[in-house]
Simulated scan of single mutants.
Amino acid sequence: MGNNSTKIALITGASRGLGRNTAAALARKGVDIIGTYHSNKAEAEETVAAIKALGRKAVMFQLDTGNVASFPAFVSEVRKALKSVWSRDGFDYLINNAGIGVHAPFAETTEDDFDRLMNIHLKGVFFLTQKLLPVIADGGRIVNLSSGLARFSLPGYSAYAAMKGAVEVLTRYLAKELGPRGIAVNTVAPGAIETDFGGGTVRDNKQVNDFVASVTALGRVGQPDDIGGAIANLLSDDNRWINAQRIEVSGGMFV
């Protein structure tokens, strides 16, 4: 695949929050970035500038990860960028990070809410990974993002958490089926963190923030750096033998 000395990571939802933090953490470890953003081009351009400031290459593409019909065109854009920017046919790491939060009691969750969550968090992850298989280098890695909410239950997240539970099962199947290609696949499950995810509730609502801190063994709410650094570390060569695992990065919530 040409010059493979530099690793390349493809991160969905890389323009903000955890995705941007992960991109920066990987860039600091010498990894180049292909990112996707949903709608905010200015944030995407800021992310590219931040990665370039760290001395790495970066490109960003618009992608709705819930719209499977758009994936073939996206994959061909990725292939073109790999050729023109890196003179390569493939990338090394896929991080399925893009997501939205819907907070609604089970009794009030609408079919539209359910479908939107499913399309982005499960169907999108399934088929984007499938479509990218020919472009992921043998010996590469995949990280799927889940949530602490797939292990513990907080009312209001039934649909979201159900999709994440499905992603954790999917991760094990991917590990098994992609094993012959030397591709390791793991789940990272963050606990509650201070980002603008779900309207920034954990970050901005003091009552929620205090509650999370009170049920976390380390006594505080998670920061994006806690997660981005863990993902970058998981993708280092030292962790090549970790496979088919769910790794919760929550500071010990509800232990």
Results as ranks from 00 to 15, higher is better:
T6G: 13
T6E: 14
K7C: 07
I8D: 00
I11T: 06
L18K: 02
T22Y: 01
A24G: 07
K29L: 08
G30M: 12
D32C: 06
I33D: 00
G35Y: 01
T36C: 12
V48D: 01
A49T: 08
K52I: 09
K52R: 15
L54E: 10
G55H: 09
Q62R: 13
L63E: 02
G66F: 01
V75K: 06
K80Y: 09
K83I: 14
S87D: 15
I95M: 02
G99N: 05
G101I: 10
E111G: 12
D113G: 08
M118S: 12
N119E: 14
I120S: 00
L122T: 08
L128P: 00
L132M: 10
L133I: 10
P134L: 08
A137E: 11
G139E: 07
I142K: 02
S146H: 04
S147T: 14
G148V: 06
L154T: 14
Y157I: 07
L174D: 07
L174Y: 12
K176Q: 14
L178H: 02
G179R: 10
P180W: 11
A189T: 03
I193P: 00
E194I: 03
D196P: 04
G198T: 06
R203T: 09
R203M: 12
D204V: 06
N205Y: 02
N209S: 15
N209R: 15
D210E: 15
D210C: 07
A213C: 14
A217S: 14
L218R: 10
R220A: 09
I227T: 04
G228F: 02
N233W: 15
D238M: 11
R246D: 05
S250V: 00
M253S: 05
F254G: 09
